[in-house]
Simulated scan of single mutants.
Amino acid sequence: MIRPAAEADIPELMRIRAAVQENRLSDPARVPASAYLDFLTFSRIWLFEDEGGILGFTAADPRDGSIWALFTDPAAEGRGIGKALLLHALDDLRSTGWEEARLSTAPGTRADAFYRRQGWQPSHMTEGGEQGFTKAL
């Protein structure tokens, strides 16, 4: 089931983000609970949940047309959770008037390959050395 996250879900979202090995922001101090809470004041965080608990989450930032987060618990990878969640984030951007979504991720990672398979187009390299992507909405 996919549903909007609530404040009480934040510790589990942080656990999932920290569990993703290729994530350079896996240090919880770099994305504290307050960042999630702040995000919930102007947008939604979508999460995927089953009887075993929360298995992934995503969020789009309507202020700049970007994907703020997309993480799947490593124990639940390969089940289509990320793909299903990403559709919700893209719908959020589309509903706020964006015609193109953007994001960046480390080049050569599983995330890089995932976004390419989902039709995202490489656009630029960021100053921080990440691969930028865009996707028409």
Rank of each mutant, 00 (worst) to 15 (best):
R15N: 06
S26P: 01
A29L: 14
L25K: 07
L13I: 02
A8L: 07
A19R: 11
R15L: 09
A19Y: 00
D9A: 07
I10S: 06
R24M: 10
A18H: 00
D9I: 12
R17P: 06
S26N: 15
R15W: 01
R3D: 10
E7W: 03
A8D: 09
R30V: 12
L13M: 14
V20K: 00
A19E: 05
L13P: 08
I10R: 02
R30L: 15
Q21K: 09
R17I: 06
A33F: 03
E22Q: 09
P11W: 06
E7D: 14
L13N: 03
V20H: 04
P32Q: 12
L13A: 01
R24A: 15
V20E: 05
I2V: 02
R30Y: 00
V31I: 15
R30A: 13
P4K: 15
P4D: 08
L25I: 00
E7I: 11
P28L: 05
V31K: 06
E12A: 15
P28V: 04
P11I: 08
R17S: 09
A29T: 13
D9R: 02
E12Y: 09
A18K: 06
E22I: 11
R3Q: 12
P4H: 05
E22W: 10
A18C: 05
R3M: 09
L25P: 00
R3Y: 11
P4Q: 13
R24C: 03
R24S: 13
E12G: 04
R17Y: 10
Q21N: 06
P32S: 01
N23S: 11
P28S: 11
R15I: 01
P11M: 00
R15M: 13
V31W: 15
E22N: 02
N23M: 04
R17F: 01
L13K: 07
M14P: 05
P32C: 08
A6W: 08
S26F: 03
R24W: 09
P4T: 12
I16G: 05
P4I: 14
I2T: 02
P32R: 01
A19T: 01
A19L: 12
A5R: 04
Q21D: 14
V31L: 13
L25Q: 08
A6F: 08
R15Q: 07
A6V: 11
Q21L: 12
R17N: 11
R24V: 14
A6E: 14
S26M: 10
A5M: 11
A19F: 02
S26Y: 00
P4N: 06
V20N: 00
R30H: 03
P4E: 10
L25D: 06
E22V: 05
I2W: 01
S26A: 15
L25H: 07
I16T: 05
I16F: 10
A33D: 14
R30D: 12
V20I: 08
P32A: 12
A18Q: 12
L13G: 00
E22K: 02
L13H: 09
S26L: 04
E12M: 11
D27Q: 07
I10W: 05
I10T: 11
D9E: 04
Q21S: 12
E12H: 10
M14D: 11
R15C: 05
